[in-house]
Design a protein around this nucleic acid. Structure first.
Lengths: 179, 179
DNA sequence: GTCTATAGATTGATAGAC
DNA sequence: GTCTATCAATCTATAGAC
């Protein structure tokens, strides 16, 4: 059910996808879905929370780097790799924020800010030791993440560029932008 | 009607907003709206097409710069300024692409590509004369636009930073990323 | 745990009075 | 050009049989 909902929400949007349509994709009747989710809103929230949990868990299991540059490179490459591996979940977690209830929205926002905080810490530490030159760590954090997220709008596996090539191109831009 | 639809679509999403809700905002009954739009889809399309037309028109009326660096700076500052002036239209034009009919989608996509082409031309010309060092002009184009678009996710007028300060910070990052 | 059936509300769009 | 009224379809969610 979650798999079907993920694909359908990503393609048509949460509000435009009915429980009947999800059930059809799963191969059951609509009523049967309510054995697995209390309602449609919880289904959306679970998908988004699961994605953010995956993101933070995967990040925490990455090897720790010592130098400022190596930390930033590791983050940039991890971010691209992780997000390119699950484009649908990424898409939903950004596009469907406004369809969350205020309570659910606050939870997702908190997870998102925690992730952004990891990058900001890297930038601030690097700036403090003179490794980076950034005008504003908060804005630079958001600018870098926005730029890296942009990969998902055009990258298709099997295309002109391989994942390592994409990582290298973006890392080069990130590195130059902060040094 | 367009004004009300713009605000409501931006806040709740096209699929989640009913014609009755738009009519309520305008102060008429739902049926009256159909004197101004043949259907809901056309209303969305007109908003998006109007936004893209505004963008290309505004861009074409900007003063022409000669040096590669000045051209890129003018584009970056123009992009930030234009997009921060109409956050709702920007939001809709990106988020509601999947709610366009295939025919309407193709029209908007063409306008978007035309705009991106202006930046790519700047980058290619600059690279050809040795002013810029970019690994891939197409990807760099998308990366820069993604980064600049990110401003709209956090900037609020009257906040910590003024528009000229924001422009300066982003221009600094763009400049360093390509030189 | 899935089914059929349905309640109760809402949707986009139209018809016809004025 | 706006109104009331409504059609026909669709929606989320639930009830109860099996």
């Amino acid at each position: 059910m979650r798999e079907a909902a993920l694909a359908l929400f990503a393609q048509h949007g949460y509000a435009a996808v009915s429980m009947r349509r999800i059930a059809q994709e799963v191969g059951v009747q609509a009523g049967a879905l309510y054995n697995y989710t209390p309602d449609k809103q919880s289904l959306l929230f679970d998908l988004m929370q699961g994605h953010m949990d995956d993101l933070l868990n995967a990040r925490s299991q990455e090897p720790v780097c010592t130098s400022a540059l190596a930390r930033l490179e590791a983050f940039s490459r991890f971010h691209i790799r992780f997000h390119l591996e699950r484009p649908q979940a990424v898409f939903i977690s950004y596009m469907e924020l406004r369809n969350l209830t205020p309570r659910n929205f606050a939870v997702i926002e908190d997870l998102r800010r925690r992730y952004e905080g990891e990058l900001e810490t890297i930038l601030r530490d690097g700036r403090d030791i003179g490794a980076f030159h950034v005008a504003d760590t908060k804005i630079t954090t958001l600018a870098i993440i926005a730029m890296l997220n942009g990969v998902n709008t055009w990258y298709r596996s099997g295309g002109r560029l391989s994942l390592p090539e994409v990582e290298a191109i973006y890392w080069d831009m990130v590195r130059k932008a902060v040094t």
